[in-house]
Design a protein around this nucleic acid. Sequence first.
DNA 1: TTGTGGGATCTGATATACCAGACTTCAGAT
DNA 2: ATCTGAAGTCTGGTATATCAGATCCCACAA
Lengths: 236, 236
Amino acid sequence: MIPEPTESQQSEGFAKIDPKFQMTVRDHVHRTLRAAILAGRFATGEKVNERGLAEQFGVSTTPVKEALRQLETEGLVEALPRRGVIIRFDMSWAEEMILARAALESMIAHLAAKRIGKPAGVELTAIADLMAKATISADADSLISLNEQFHEHIHRSSRCGYLAKLIERQQFYDASIRRVIHMDPAERQKALEEHTAIARAIVAGDADLAERQMRNHVVRSGETYLNIVFGNKKDI
Amino acid sequence: MIPEPTESQQSEGFAKIDPKFQMTVRDHVHRTLRAAILAGRFATGEKVNERGLAEQFGVSTTPVKEALRQLETEGLVEALPRRGVIIRFDMSWAEEMILARAALESMIAHLAAKRIGKPAGVELTAIADLMAKATISADADSLISLNEQFHEHIHRSSRCGYLAKLIERQQFYDASIRRVIHMDPAERQKALEEHTAIARAIVAGDADLAERQMRNHVVRSGETYLNIVFGNKKDI
DNA sequence: TTGTGGGATCTGATATACCAGACTTCAGAT
DNA sequence: ATCTGAAGTCTGGTATATCAGATCCCACAA
């Protein structure tokens, strides 16, 4: 049996499958529930039933319980001992998740500006350049992918494993929503300008500037998301 | 059977027990493991055995699995599917937890400055005043308690449930370590100055100042902690 | 010596069973 | 009609059993 190659090929033969990519039932349940909650398919305060979920997924309650425990720690559900778990997600929660991401992502941008090396800086600039091209050609798929690469690259440059992991959990709009966001040419242009400015600040080593710009970028694009998904409101 | 009264009495009769305060086995396992990890009683990369833990706690594997799932989401252990979980905590992880807390706590201070009302502002100032008294009289226990109240009060004033919850998870030095920190008169004095300045900025509604001061406070006191627990090192 | 492979063993992942709080309901008392 | 409480039901918490992937070990061949 030949192992499936992964994104990151190694120099010789086939790369080992990263064990993290293996899918367990509990991960499937966790991801599915998480996506459903973030998509607003549960009402805040709604009670969920472990046995019921297990039945819907066609699995036993064990992996469901574990998935719920993860969601609880993520703050998306609340567990009342011996009573059950209730959904905790609405617009204000989404707003706060954006703020959390803004706070963490700007902190990591700050550190990246301080710690990034020459070659990584060149790469970041290259990604930003590709984004410029994709913006002009209105290539939404490329933009989505490049956006991911961009932030990922900054995370790596900051050399912060814990912070990067924490940020991942504040991520709640998926590719389909990103696509909608990128439909708007003005939004594309604005995002490009922000990304370019962030890249410039990081490469230049201006930590404070990078931090401010990243924060504004996350908050602004987050508001765009909120407007699309929940409708309007002003805050912060 | 008369229910146990809780901290927050209600106007009539006894308050109901908040169901959150009920202790389950998995919570006990979770808290105990968490404390052990943060106290450095596991080496980074060390593999932990579910059955072994269950046996040590004298419980079945079910609550242990759930506790490990929580720790995984918290970022304190890493789960390798079908291989087990390994501990993920060392000085660099602790540094990042401090940075995460700094980022989040400063964000919440920012919002608190914007949203705090008159009466809550008066209360915050009152807490700061009590801290001044406790600092002079070197009352470590009061200081620890007041410190908790201080941050808690700011969290409430910000009206951010999600962020507050997130911050709680970045909290990793317990009362015993706080006591050690408060042994040093210079440290007590420094902390008091910072708390006073933060309170002033929040009450004055100066969000940016409150944010900066909170961030510096968390980072600086975090470094004090690091020096005590891990020894020296310079960063950020 | 090295390395290959098959089997024994360990251990996480899942399923199932059982127990005990919590909630519901309804009869009986006031 | 309203209140009380006891029985019944629901459901989460815990324990146990089972399955299968991962690891270890050692014999045996090149």
